[in-house]
Design a protein around this nucleic acid. Structure first.
Length: 614
DNA sequence: GCGGATCAC
DNA sequence: TATGGTGATCCGC
């Protein structure tokens, strides 16, 4: 690519720079260059702790540290594609007719009325977020670090303390870039056992306030404190203040909190006074809508870099802007996105908080980045190594998969994924290896920097049935909700499957070699995986898993609560109503009838008068 | 139903 | 020199 520019006049730095940024047409290159700086800044620019940081200067450093790399060129391509996409949105917007907008407007009005009827202000939801969690935990053991800029992570930083943030260091930033921004930066390796211990200590305190709290990650949880506030006759802010004080006294860690009538609002609110602060969004329609009104759309969970750009192109910058542009939005974006955005405008969200254990995963996978290579032998070894990791997780979780996914990232950072339906459910490294290699060979020749294996359409081996997404649900109907991975391991039984280790002798030799390398537990350069120690890796994975399931559950609940009718076709008898949380029959007509009732009642009056009758 | 893209953490 | 891993969902085809 750079060779394209070898014929540029020498010594003309400016022309060369502009040529380097040039992608397709001169007209878009400036825009692309501008937004590329923004893109390279990463997703965490809008996080707390960056007040007074010279973003433009940081952006330049990042740009200069990256320019010329394959990573940079990939980002550049993506940015150019996005610009095209955004232009298309703009063009579409111009072509929407007056009649179409009028018709859409009526539909939007009806929809909003419907949503207002369902608005539930009766619950007090809290979102709790530990401040710079990993970094703060490290500071407990290393008080000397408090005044110094430091981060936690590996080649890519997981988090950093607030001193480092002042320099412009951010989570998800490549370490070598961070070091350019802040050469004194200290980077500590991750120590998950330590974080888990602290996280458990915090959760133990929180459980007293809501035994059904939903711990999304080690450092983040949703709670419903409605009942607790009622019982102790204290206001939500008093309760949350006390809760945070107790956490700090007992663990010496600070947490920030957002309080509101639903999860979405609470989550956003927890960032308002971060770190070590809290913010209450009043549980009134006006209070919530005022809060959303001037909120940049990017602050909403689920609105990322791409959607933000599209919305901006449509004239939508804040959640308050959504209403005026809703008819246009509905003509251009999907129904799902339109409804989601209406929820954002109205400040609606899930009012149900349930423990994370009640939600089942839909896939398990394992992927590794390594020195890019096109050598099939090396790539097969990678597959073998990853296959073994994946098998461990299958055993731990007692699952198998009916589909098998193979994914790779080219040295250009381009991602490719393939899925194959398995003749039988699979869960052994031999099977993963066999099918993984088959799928790799179909792609050769390629130069690859990452390989991933994944199973989906999971089978719960303890029940020998498909995993269910919406578990029948609660203490009353099912006290033995699956929990704790420790005893699951004991129930593991390998399936009787025909597969034996790799077929050809060549492959077998390879694997023998690899086995020896692994057994010698050498992390030397011949195995360039630099794999983390097992217990750490699986812990880290468990964290990510719980995050993912939590998010999934959260979205499920929200989708249901916003009348999306995407109700689970659970094979079970009892489900928790997504609106009121009561246990009702999952039989479709009964469930629908119940939900109709939930919708048709005078929600506000009922909620205020009858909060605790459920 | 697959593959790509987006998003969160 | 050099930019992660896990999982979910949605969309276009």
């Amino acid at each position: 690519m750079t060779s394209t520019f070898t014929d540029m006049p020498e010594g003309d730095a400016e022309a060369e720079a502009s040529a380097r940024q040039k992608t397709k047409s001169a007209s878009t290159s400036d825009i692309v260059s501008d937004t590329l700086h923004h893109r390279l800044l990463g997703p965490s620019i809008q996080k707390s702790g960056q007040e007074g940081v010279d973003q433009a200067a940081i952006s330049k450093i990042i740009y200069n540290a990256s320019v010329g790399s394959k990573y940079f060129e990939h980002q550049q391509r993506k940015e150019a594609e996005l610009s095209t996409k955004v232009d298309a949105v703009r063009l579409l917007a111009e072509k929407v007719s007056r009649q179409e907008l009028d018709a859409a407007s009526d539909r939007i009005s009806a929809r909003i009325k419907q949503l207002e009827v369902g608005r539930d202000l009766s619950q007090t939801i809290v979102h709790l977020d530990c401040d710079a969690f990993y970094a703060s935990v490290e500071e407990l053991d290393r008080p000397d670090l408090k005044s110094k800029p430091f981060a936690v992570g590996g080649g890519v930083l997981c988090t950093c303390n607030y001193v480092a943030r002042k320099y412009g260091v951010r989570s998800a930033m490549a370490k070598f870039v961070a070091m350019k921004i802040c050469p004194e930066l200290i980077v500590l390796p991750l120590n998950f056992p330590k974080y888990i211990e602290k996280s458990d200590a915090i959760k133990k305190i929180l459980t007293e306030y809501d035994p059904n709290l939903c711990a999304m990650t080690l450092d983040e949880a949703y709670m419903n404190i409605t009942e607790y506030c009622q019982r102790v006759e204290k206001s939500p802010e008093e309760v949350v203040s006390e809760m945070r004080r107790r956490v700090q006294n007992d663990t010496r860690l600070t947490v920030s909190a957002g309080i509101g009538p639903n999860s979405r609002v609470a989550k956003i609110a927890s960032n308002v006074n971060k770190p070590n602060g809290q913010f209450v969004v009043p549980s009134t329609r006006e209070g919530v809508m005022d809060f959303m009104k001037y909120l940049p759309v990017r602050k909403v969970t689920g609105i990322g870099y791409v959607l933000e750009r599209q919305l901006n192109a449509l004239g939508v910058n804040t959640c308050g802007d959504i209403l005026a542009h809703a008819p246009l939005i509905s003509e251009i974006l999907s129904d799902i996105q339109t409804n989601f955005l209406l929820d954002c405008y109205l400040g609606l969200g899930s009012t149900v908080v349930r423990p994370i254990e009640q939600y089942e995963r839909k896939s398990v996978g394992c992927e590794r980045t390594f020195q890019a290579t096109s050598d099939p032998v090396v790539l097969k070894r990678k597959i073998w190594s990853i296959a073994q990791e994946l098998e461990k997780d299958c055993k731990r979780l007692n699952i198998a998969g009916r589909k098998f996914g193979f994914k790779y990232k080219k040295d250009t950072f381009e991602l490719v994924s393939r899925i194959r339906v398995m003749p039988k459910q699979v869960n052994t490294s031999n099977e993963f290896y066999k099918y993984g290699v088959q799928m790799l060979e179909r792609e050769l020749p390629i130069t690859v920097r990452l390989i991933g294996l994944r199973i989906t359409d999971l089978v719960d081996l303890r029940r020998e049935g498909p995993m269910r997404t919406f578990l029948r649900g609660t203490r009353t109907t099912d006290p033995a909700v699956p929990s704790g991975s420790s005893d699951e391991v004991k129930h593991w039984k390998p399936l009787e499957l025909e597969s034996m280790p790799p077929v050809t002798t060549e492959e077998a030799d390879e694997l023998d070699d690899l086995d020896m390398m692994i057994q010698s537990s050498q992390t030397a350069h011949d195995v360039d995986d630099t794999e983390p120690r097992d217990e750490l890796r699986s812990v880290s994975k468990a964290v990510a898993e719980s995050q993912s399931r939590a998010r999934n559950s959260f979205k499920d609940a929200e989708a249901a609560s916003s009348l999306q009718e995407q109700l689970p076709q659970a094979a079970s008898n009892i489900v928790a109503c997504p609106m009121c949380g009561n246990h009702v029959s999952s039989e479709p007509s009964a469930l629908n009838a119940h939900i109709d009732w939930c919708l048709s009642r005078d929600a506000i009056r009922q909620a205020v008068g009858d909060t605790f009758t459920q």
